[in-house]
Design a protein around this nucleic acid. Structure first.
Lengths: 191, 191
DNA sequence: ACTGGATTTGAACGATCGTTCAAGCCATAA
DNA sequence: TTATGGCTTGAACGATCGTTCAAATCCAGT
């Protein structure tokens, strides 16, 4: 049976996502991957390199899910809202209610500049993906075209960060969740 | 010269705030405090206990600053906006652009339940403080009284989390900052 | 000056960290 | 069957982690 690199990376990503960079030890990762240190270092290089690849794996997954949401919905805007709901409501199964990129940017310091910059870069990619969906909505007259879509995307991203952080801090506030999502979504639509 | 417990705690708080719980070693703290391990453990108990006291110190400071802002301003609402601006704009001197409580809640897991719960508790305290200021504003007819002030406070806290996280992730976006603050503030006022 | 209790010191502990590498294993080719 | 080359293994490394504690130091009261 061949070694499944993708699956191993998936396990590592979930662990890093749940516990963060510093609190996740290589020994825990070895256990989750069912691999011995030598193999891991041969495949991924180092803990930092592995984390970087985990970030990229996570970001690629997120963008794919956004694209899937848009495709499965009737309109770009509906797809966007579906994505937001999916992300915020489905946080029970996820390793963390928060975005792994935001968590990483929150945790990392100048001691790991490369990782910090990579996380920022990938998060900017997400913002651009949002902007593209919003531009689509504008092209289809679903959204007023007199506001810069990148500005809307920025506002949306900020709101989404706040939403997911709030859920993390107040996990029992699931009741208010749908209304909060609506507030966020409507708030930024009418901006 | 007597040992200044408050000053020592202040140094520790700044370190924890900047680097988080796991990435801050006791040796770094010893250096920042200019104290030897024995003295620290005699005064504060353990790393966890020290961090808990740092959280409390930080939260008390934050509430005091909010109160000061309200007092120095002409109205509760103006005080609130001043506080938000102060917090978001003045993040250059601060150890981190993000709230230490939010950072902690983001970083900590079930491996340190007590710290996690304490951070959540203190953050709820902040939210309540917001609610009180908003209730004041309602009492002075500065804000419509037909919306629950605790609901407004919740929304404000979510927005503030998003704002500070966004600034952290996109530190070069200081240009859009004032407009973002306005958006946040106005957005939640008209809700 | 002397004493006794409180405080400060810093070496050292065991545990765990990220990482390495010689030795063992296994599939393929001759 | 044997030789070869790459992959896997897990013990072990030095560094650092949080923490302890006996010894040194300090200072108030006599």
């Amino acid at each position: 049976m061949k070694f499944d690199r993708q699956e191993a990376l998936h396990q590592a990503t979930d662990l890093f996502w749940a516990k963060g960079f510093h609190a996740t030890s290589m020994r825990t990762i070895q256990q989750a991957m069912d691999m011995r240190p030598g193999s891991i270092y041969a495949s991924f290089g180092s803990k930092e390199a592995l984390f970087k690849q985990a970030l990229q794996y996570y970001a690629a997954n997120s963008q794919a899910r956004l694209a899937a949401c848009v495709e499965q919905s009737d309109s770009p805007l509906a797809g966007l809202k579906r994505f937001i709901s999916e992300v915020v409501m489905g946080c029970d199964q996820a390793p963390s209610s928060m975005c792994m990129l935001v968590k990483s940017i929150t945790e990392l310091t100048e001691d790991n500049v490369e990782l910090l910059l990579e996380a920022k870069r990938l998060l900017n990619g997400m913002e651009q993906a949002f902007a593209e969906v919003l531009a689509q909505a504008q092209a289809q007259q679903q959204l007023s075209g007199d506001v810069d879509s990148t500005r809307l995307a920025r506002y949306l991203q900020m709101q989404l960060m706040g939403l997911r952080a709030y859920v993390r801090a107040n996990s029992d506030a699931k009741e208010h969740l749908e209304s909060l999502i609506d507030d966020v979504f409507n708030g930024f639509i009418t901006t």
